[in-house]
Every structure is written in C-alpha cells, then in structure tokens.
Simulated assay, not measured.
Amino acid sequence: MARGHKLGAFDIGMMVLSLVAVINICVLVLMDLPKDVHSYLVFMDTLICMLFLLNFTYNLLVAKNRTTYFKEHWIDFVASIPMIEPFRFARFLQVLRVIRLLKQTRHLALPSLKDRIQTTLATMMVTLVLLIGAAGLSIYLIEHDLPGANITTAEDAIWWSLVTISTVGYGDYYPVSTAGRIVSVLLIISGVSLFGVISGYIASFFITPAEKDQLAVQNRRIHEIHDQVENLQSQISDIQRMLMDMHQQNTAQKSDPPPKDKP
C-alpha cells in the first residue's frame, strides 16, 4: 500500500486470506499428509493465490503511479504466484505488512468498513473461500473411507462443496454418514444465506436510482422553500424599514413647536 493509502475492506479481507494461506502452507510443509489431502490443500492455496493476483492487478490498474505501486507492493505479487514453494513463504511478510498497516491506520480501518459495497463484496469473498475449503475438507475426512461412500477423493469433495453451497444439488455426490449430513446441512444453510445476501445486494442496484431520484426531488423542494422563506424575510425587512421611517416622521412632526401668530 502506498503512503497515505486508505485501508479498505478488501485489504482487510486479503489479510484474512493471507492468514489462512499461511496456516495452509504450514500444514503442507510440516505435516505428512495423505495424497488426496495434500492435493486438496494445494487446490485451496491456488484458489487463494488467484484472488491475490486479481486484487493486485486491480490495485495496479487503478493506482495513480503504477511504477511506484509495483515497487511498494512487489512482495504481494511474489506471494500471489501459486505452485512455487519458495514464493509461498513470502505470505508471512505479506501478513506482517498488513498487520503493521492496521496498527498505523487504526483510525482509518473502521471508517473504511462503512463503505457498503466494498465491505459486502470482501465479506462474501472471504466467507465463500472459507466455507468451500472447510466444508470440502471436512466431508472428505469424514466420508472417504466409509463403506458405500461416493465422496472418496479430494476432487469429489471440492465438487460436492461447490455444488452444495451454490444450492444446485446435482445429487451425483452426497454424504452417507450422519456427521457428513450435518456438515451438508450447515453448508446448505450457509449457502442460502450467502446467496440471499448477494441477491439483496444485486437488487439494491435497481432500488438505488429510484431512491436517488426521490432524494433529488426532496432537495429541490427544500431549496424552493428556502428561497421562498428568504423572499418573505426580505419583504418583511422592507416593511419594517417603511414602518420605522413613518414612525420617525410622525415623531419629528410632533416634536416641532407650533408656529406663533403675528400681531
């Protein structure tokens, strides 16, 4: 982030995803995982990297000075490159940088969250990634070795998670255990809630212009009433001055001595 850059909701969202990515990397490096679990975590890491690249590209395109922005944020670009092990550890620096910015711009972080558009999109993006990742991994760990299970690979779990959260429900993959069904219910409820927010957010685009038109009409009426009040005040002031002049004239006439009669 450039100096003086206002910390936005997307920046905070990227920090949350960076923390998730760091935890993901630690698990991949430090633990001896089954092949399918390893593949699943690599897929989630790649998905997060794509979001990092999109965010970096957007910020670079809208930056006033792209060269300066790239010099100050090259670590973000390096940390966003997927599938290369050494580059993944750059995300530790990315997280530390954002935490330092949060401390320095603490007074700007909360006002930035009042931006309804950015906050809504950032929240949905982070929530969607976390739900897909957590639910898919959970259903794989629960189901893959059960008798009669059809979710037996990481690819099956990812596909099931995407289909379930989108409430499409093809039915080609489904849980056979009670624990798996509980995970499914939670994911379905989360998906319905999430896409309900998205629907309301899209609907707001159609409602907002009408609200703006109504507000413009109200503002015009307020200005018209304000002008009328100013005209009335001006007329009242003129009448007051006329009355004062008449009063002064009458007072002067009464104070003059009457003329004396000549002998």
Score class of each variant (00 low, 15 high):
Phe87Gln: 07
Glu143Ile: 03
Ser237His: 11
Met15Cys: 12
Met1Asn: 05
Leu53Asp: 01
Asp245Met: 04
Gly200Arg: 09
Thr208Ile: 14
Leu215Tyr: 12
Met124Gln: 13
Tyr170Trp: 13
Asp145Gly: 11
Ile117Gln: 06
His38Trp: 11
His247Asp: 12
Cys49Met: 06
Leu186Ala: 14
Pro209Asn: 02
Glu230Lys: 02
Ala63Glu: 07
Ile12Arg: 00
Phe77Ile: 01
Arg116Gln: 12
Asp145Arg: 13
Val197Arg: 04
Glu85Gly: 15
Gly169Glu: 11
Lys35His: 05
Ala122Pro: 05
Gln214His: 13
Phe206Arg: 04
Ala157Gly: 05
Leu96Gly: 06
Met124His: 12
Asp76Glu: 14
Leu28Pro: 03
Asp145Asn: 10
Leu215Trp: 07
Leu101Gln: 08
Val168Arg: 10
Gln118Phe: 05
Leu186Glu: 12
Asp145Ile: 06
Thr105Cys: 13
Leu187Val: 15
Gln249Asn: 04
Leu101Met: 03
Arg181Asn: 15
Ala216Pro: 01
Thr152Trp: 00
Ala135Cys: 04
Thr127Ser: 15
Glu224Phe: 09
Ile165Gln: 04
Leu101Phe: 08
Lys254Gly: 08
Lys114Glu: 06
Arg220Lys: 15
Val27Gln: 12
Ser184Met: 14
Ala21Ser: 11
Leu141Gly: 10
Pro86Ala: 07
Ile239Trp: 13
Gly8Val: 08
Gly8Ile: 09
Asn150Cys: 09
Thr167Ala: 10
Pro259Ile: 04
Ile236Leu: 13
Glu85His: 12
Lys114Pro: 05
Asp115Thr: 09
Val29Ala: 15
Leu137Gln: 14
Lys262Met: 04
Thr46Ile: 10
Leu146Gln: 15
Asn219Ile: 12
Thr167Phe: 11
Thr208Lys: 14
Ser80Glu: 02
Pro147Leu: 01
Ser166Asp: 07
Tyr173Trp: 05
Gln249Asp: 11
Met244Gln: 13
Leu101Ile: 04
Leu30Ala: 13
Asn231Asp: 12
Thr123Ile: 11
Gly136Thr: 04
Asp261Ile: 12
Ala216Glu: 05
Gly180Ala: 01
Ile222Phe: 15
Arg106Ile: 03
Asp213His: 08
Met125Pro: 04
Val197Gln: 04
Leu110Gln: 07
Asn55Gly: 09
Ile81Ala: 09
Ser193Cys: 12
Gly148Trp: 01
Ala252Tyr: 00
Asp213Cys: 05
Glu224Cys: 00
Cys26Tyr: 07
Ile99Asn: 09
Thr46His: 05
Leu7Asp: 01
Val176Arg: 04
Pro34Ile: 06
Ile84Thr: 00
Thr153Phe: 00
Leu93Val: 07
Leu137Arg: 13
Gly8Thr: 12
Met1Gly: 06
Ile222Gly: 07
Arg221Leu: 06
Gln240Arg: 09
Val197Cys: 10
Thr46Asn: 07
Asp11Trp: 02
Leu121Thr: 12
Pro263Gly: 13
Val98Leu: 11
Asp227Lys: 13
Leu232Glu: 10
Val168Cys: 15
Leu60Gly: 00
Ser255Thr: 15
Leu110Cys: 06
Asp227Val: 00
Phe52Cys: 02
